[in-house]
Design a protein around this nucleic acid. Structure first.
Length: 494
RNA sequence: GGCGCGGUACCCAAGUGGUAAGGGAGAGGUCUGCAAAACCUUUAUGCGUCGGUUCGAUCCCGACCCGCGCCUCCA
């Protein structure tokens, strides 16, 4: 089954394909690097990551471009407040952004494009529009896009602007525009703000122009897919289409992918509600990066996800179960005997088919997840009854490998990532925000734990269960859980 | 006001015109020195409410109630 995806532009689910027959050329609106990324940002990037990985699973090559917005109003304001040049200010948050992406297992795009490194392309795009009188210069030196000259305006967000009143919301310092809906392509320089000397006059880019210019530079005037959060649909993406198509007279992106906003504890995330969380906030509270990734991916991208701490705990447990299962199948010594019958093999293969089909069906990550748990239970049951063969174990591992090529949660990097977050908090003087129990748990090194486990094993062989249980309880209090099994003792951090 | 989305068990959450996936949690059991893990059993005659279409609706249509999003350079 070919990969099909909802297309905001057509309002339908359509096959996703590479128009050049080789690589999927797509653009994703990246972050404005004025602060640390929050979980809403990462929900979007995580689903774009799942899309990347699913496309690859379907045999598509990838040419993925993501922008970094490193000049805008918020950046200028914050950098000024910090007494830093915007370049220096942005570099810090860009670095943090990629650290967070790595922590969440989000793959890097093939191409990163910074706005400030692509001013030339934006200027020439505006010049192309000016040559057609679609871009015009206002008295203050800013350039605007004349929406009346682009008949398709509103086709993405399904807005009919004819009925809208001009001037309903006119910003006081934008009174020079010809029409209220006309948007800025180029903002005239203001004293004390970053600006570039260009043929358009001194100034800086408007918000939308960077994505048009950089998408066309790296992907061509027409390309396969454009992605972003649902809020970007209007006005950002609508304006991108207008600018790009008015200049090139060609269709811009064929397919549009929008990820819905998440709710946090039932409400829209906002600083004033007190439910605003960065990734780093959650790591310091003791939640694992893998659980955050799994939770954010567990609800399909077109549905609203209600992000809660209970949900995070559930996801932690679910990931644990998957890891325990993976370890069991990987390390077990399964007999070479031929399977008694094909029942289990067929079940595993059905899981494989269901998994791929679910993802191909508009990236239904919830169903894909369920397919894996179906196999997990069946294989565990077989293993419990000594009916699991090496053949079926290997089939299972292949499926787990496929699962992890999308979900990427099986490898346990959590303690290491949390340590990194703690080190960051310390360097920022924010260690007081960390959950105290985290510090005690992580204060035990793996070697410390192994030593105590060895001592307990010795006590057990001497049937000194009191001592053995004392050690186990001591570790449990520090958040370290022991599991005895036929093949020895395993431990894990809670 | 305009456009759009959603209401499924204790919680999260798929899904289909033909009789309710999966995860988490709880309870009981098997196993174990005891735990843990794993497995088994169990938790919706029911899918917001009321009508309609149909042999048959959670799924289609209509109305209503509730929640939410966009229309504000918030992903």
């Amino acid at each position: 089954m070919a990969l099909e995806l909802f297309n905001t532009l057509s309002g339908k689910i359509e096959p996703l394909f590479a128009s050049d027959g080789r690589a999927l050329r797509f653009y994703c609106c990246g972050p404005t690097v004025y602060d640390y990324g929050h979980i809403g940002n990462f929900r979007t990037f995580l689903h774009v990551d799942a899309l990347r990985r699913t496309a690859r699973l379907n045999g598509l090559g990838l040419h993925h471009v993501m922008n970094i917005t490193d000049v805008d109003d918020k950046i200028i304001r914050n950098a000024a407040a910090a007494g830093q040049p915007i370049g220096e200010y942005c570099a810090k948050y860009e670095r943090a952004f990629f650290e967070d992406m790595d922590a969440l297992g989000i793959e890097r795009p093939e191409q990163i494009a910074r706005a400030t490194e692509n001013i030339d392309g934006m200027v020439s795009l505006i010049e192309r529009l000016a040559a057609q009188d679609i871009a015009y210069k206002a008295e203050d030196g800013s350039w605007y896009f004349r929406i009346a000259r682009f008949p398709g305006y509103g086709k993405l967000s399904k807005k009919d602007l004819h009925g809208m009143e001009d001037g309903a919301r006119v910003d006081l310092d934008e009174y020079e525009k010809d029409a209220a809906r006309d948007f800025a392509l180029w903002k005239a320089a203001k004293p004390g703000e970053a600006s570039w000397e260009t043929p358009l006059g001194p100034g800086r880019p408007g918000w939308h122009i960077e994505c048009s210019a950089m998408a066309m530079k790296y992907l061509g005037e027409s390309f396969d897919l454009h992605a972003g959060g649902e809020d970007l649909m209007f006005p950002h993406h609508e304006n991108e289409i207008a600018q790009s198509e008015a200049a090139s007279h060609k269709p811009f992106a064929r397919h549009w992918f929008h990820v819905r906003f998440l709710l946090v504890e039932g409400k829209k995330m906002s600083k004033s509600e007190g439910n605003f969380f960065t990734l780093r906030d959650l790591l310091l509270k003791g939640y694992r990066a893998s659980a955050i990734r799994f939770l954010l991916l567990s609800v399909p991208y077109r549905h609203q996800l209600n992000f809660t701490f209970d949900g995070l705990t559930e996801s932690t447990n679910a990931v644990d179960r998957l890891r325990t299962f993976n370890d069991r199948i990987r390390t077990g010594n399964w007999p070479d005997a031929a399977p008694a019958d094909a029942t289990l093999t067929n079940l595993i293969r059905k899981g494989d088919t269901d998994f791929t089909a679910a993802l191909s069906n508009d990236l239904n990550t919830a169903e894909a997840r369920a397919a894996i748990f179906d196999v997990l239970r069946a294989v565990n049951t077989a293993a419990d009854h000594s009916r699991l063969t090496r053949f079926d174990a290997e089939e299972t591992l292949a499926l787990l490998n496929k699962f992890d090529s999308i979900f990427a949660v099986l490898e346990d990097r959590d303690a290491e990532l949390t340590r990194t977050a703690l080190a960051w908090a310390e360097s920022e003087g924010r260690l007081d925000e960390a959950d105290p129990s985290l510090l005690t748990t992580l204060s035990f090194s793996d070697a410390d734990i192994d030593a105590l486990v060895a001592e307990r094993t010795l006590a057990k062989t001497q049937r000194n269960f009191a001592r053995a249980d004392a050690i186990r309880n001591e570790l449990l209090e520090k958040g370290i859980l022991l599991e005895d099994s036929k093949d020895g003792v395993r431990w894990k951090r809670k």
